[in-house]
Design a protein around this nucleic acid. Sequence first.
DNA 1: TTGTGTTTTATTGCCTCC
DNA 2: GGAGGCAATAAAACACAA
Length: 295
Amino acid sequence: MKRFGSSDSLGALISICAPKDATIVNAEEKYAVTNQEGYSKEFQAMLDSLDQEDCSEEFTGKKRRLGMDQVKALEKHFEVENKLEPERKAKLADELGLQPRQVAIWFQNRRARWKTKQMEKDYSLLKANYDSLKLSYEALQQQNEALRKQVKQLKAKMCREIEGSNQSIKEESPFSGHESNADHTRENKAEFHETYGNYAKSKDGSSDSDSINGVTKEDHGKPEFSLGPKGSSSSSNSMKNWIQISDNFSRAFSVKICQPQFMRMEDQTPFSSDESCNFFSVDQAPTLHWYFPEQ
DNA sequence: TTGTGTTTTATTGCCTCC
DNA sequence: GGAGGCAATAAAACACAA
């Protein structure tokens, strides 16, 4: 257990024991006044009696506040170094007429106050940062909302365009009407393979007759996407274009399109509603719950 | 003058370091 | 094991409104 030392200085005793004066705020000022004008009879008597007593006796009087000059000096030293090595403590105590223990306690309490202040500062700083981040977050959220609306509009537009394109392919397809007899179809298929198979071969350098411009066997399962007659240039051009469009689209967005003409934008687009939402969405505002336990 | 809230000084108990 | 630091707290001093 830590206890007071027994070497009270006279200055400390004077400041402790000086009589209370309503017009003088602290003991230091009292000490200064009495030094200038001489001690009152009562106070002088008390000093005399203290002199007569054994001054090494441990002081157990009431608390007293330090004088203004003492506090100023302590503050000055605290600014230089907020910790106190023994020599400095003794020197300071001697200079200020305090017990080394009092100096140590003052530094200890001062450190505690400094820490509290520091925490308040840090808190304000963090709060300012938090507020600023929150504002940015809200602005981004608004931007996100606007972009999502824009994406939705673009998706609808693309859907309409693709549906229109599909419609024109259907109308132009020779197999969509009465001409779909088996022989004719076989013949046309052979012609198509001859034409587009060679095209694919010349393009890729491979002999995969099922691969046409990147569209694989599994890609042409539907009759609507089946093969047009040789010579029906408008039909085959449309199909080529469509294949090209689909291929470009799938490459651009890394989406495998198995049934291009029936692809639902909602399911296949890289901006599927879920993905696009998740990309931009943030489930909740950033919180500093660890810093703001009350929130 | 008094009640009350705040600040300052001091104590206590625990912990770490040498 | 002693010295010193820190957190929590007590208690005195102080400020101030009613």
